[in-house]
Write a protein that binds this DNA or RNA. Structure first.
Lengths: 190, 190, 190, 190
DNA sequence: AATGAATGAGTCTTCATTCAT
DNA sequence: GATGAATGAAGACTCATTCAT
């Protein structure tokens, strides 16, 4: 693994454990097993790793989506999508929070859109296909709706996993409600 | 205005301008026109103002909602709701970001839910009423759906106003799509 | 002695001993017996004490001049002036060097003129008086000549005490030559 | 141009632009278009180029003097000398300062005398000739007086070009005064 | 309750120097 | 001789926090 990747990995670990504010460059380089100065050969400041970290997160999500969302019917795909986003958010909550937190602290907020582009495109394509098979309403605009849906699913996952004490009963109910909500929104209800 | 409020106001301004990480207690007290030590009579640390700031934001949002969402038909109320959230997000974008950012940096993440409670309750009531008048589908759970909806609307507003270069044509199209999305989700389509 | 003065005194000592480049803020504050941060309450950077140090040097020189240059005849005053500058340069060589060195390293070079103003004014007055008593040629401009003379005397002192291994025989010869040089320059030769 | 010379040239440029303290080896090697490590094949430290730089400056001054001071009468030579030193100081002010500054920072202060030797010798010879032609007073010691004169001319030039906002009217007056001053000092006045 | 000068631990960042290629 | 990535020691500077007034 090259030095740049080692820094990114180490930064993810350190930020996740101690939070962005409390993490020092020194924490990162110790984990990456490189010298203090080496960090600055690759990134000019503490927060400038943030976009790279965000990219790692989205890459990861894309891998999971491609692995898990495989059903032929759109309705099942919707379940798989929600499950995957929920699962990823739950299991990488620190990462999700730190990306948001880190990006907002940095000057890199605008990059968020770019980083998410693959995800939006992926869902947009799925919606387009479902429109053609008549599984969802023809009136929706795939690209806009993809963005809205991702927002809906992620914000719901965040409400559940970041802000609440988890309670799996409640999580399941809420997830059901979300799926019905989306099903209706997409005109996919039979 | 008492000292406590002056601190909160000053903190909002300072955080908005310089970001949470780069703002110092010194910045805040200068704006509040109080002495360095006085800050500590009211708040034990830099980030401990955060929940108070968040409360100010939600209070503000509640005031706007009560003022603007006044139509008798639920469909119109939905438009008013979206407009109000969009407007508030657009005009207080820094505040929205810094609350999120500040809460994630602090140990106060769990308080988010509490802070948002009035908002969820308010929407939940409106949904309940709309169910009774038959304007939206009877099958939805008001409390869960309120949370999902707020997430949907806010995340969409954030995508538009925080991450993008704004383009009012695009904003309007996207907002239309969002309203149709929500109308369908709620079974409010005729 | 207030903190500001303690810093200046400590800085003079530290710079004199170790040189400007090798002196650290930490060295200065240890000598001044204050905390690291306190330094920055009074001076924004390491080199920004420099003008104050220079002022101390010139103050010192002025005190010596007022004490030593007391003769009634201008010719004797000239001897006293040269002696005083030579003596001061010899006994504060480190200070002289560090001021020059420190000012040139800082952005404060232009302040040199201001710092020297009292000295120029003092000599200018003496020259003016001597013109009136006919002890020196009437054609000279006191203010310009004061500057030229100070330059001549100081550069000669520096050549002797800073750049050379001292040799008191040589010093005396050179000083004699300088006095004759100046006496002629001023048209004070009998 | 060989690497050693490229380093010296690059160092002059870099020091002139950023000052000695703020110039890094890295700045120098970039300009010299050589590798970081190569520097150390030629010079053991940052300040050890300083004597070479000083030599370049004096060489340059000697070339100019030999080119410009060509009149047969000493009086005219004096004008040419002052003009040349003024011109050189004005056009290489950064260099002049940095040499002084650099030497004072290094352990090379004593070398100043050696570096200036050719200049002192040159002037000393001219004075000796002028004594023999009776153009200046016979009583002066050429070697001492050469040193004093160089100090006088350079310190005046420095006062004008380094410490002051330049004002060409003032410069000319001051230069006139200097020439009269020197003329008298040398007993060259008729 | 209010002040604000003083603190000093802790951080980022720089940069001279090295050394394997 | 030449390279330039890597080093890590060292220093400037910051800033949350304290406390005598």
């Amino acid at each position: 693994m090259d030095k740049r990747e080692r820094i990114i990995t180490a930064a993810i670990e350190a930020f996740s454990e101690k939070g962005v504010e409390k993490t020092t460059i020194s924490d990162i380089v110790k984990r990456a097993n490189i010298a203090q100065g080496t960090y600055y050969l690759y990134f000019p400041s503490k927060l400038s790793v943030m976009p790279d970290i965000a990219a790692v997160f989205v890459d990861h999500l894309m891998v999971e989506l491609n692995k898990n969302v495989t059903a032929s019917s759109f309705k099942k795909q919707l379940h798989e999508l929600v499950d995957t986003v929920f699962y990823t958010t739950e299991h990488h909550k620190n990462l999700a929070v730190l990306i948001y937190s880190g990006l907002t602290q940095s000057e890199h907020l605008q990059q968020w859109e770019t980083i998410y582009t693959p995800l939006y495109d992926w869902l947009s394509n799925r919606l387009e296909q479902a429109k053609q098979t008549g599984e969802i309403r023809n009136s929706l605009r795939s690209d806009s709706t993809a963005r809205i849906m991702i927002g809906t699913i992620e914000s719901t996952a965040e409400q559940l996993f970041l802000y609440n004490q988890e309670d799996s009963g409640y999580v399941n109910e809420h997830k059901q409600e979300l799926i019905i909500f989306l099903t209706n929104a997409l005109g996919a209800s039979d």
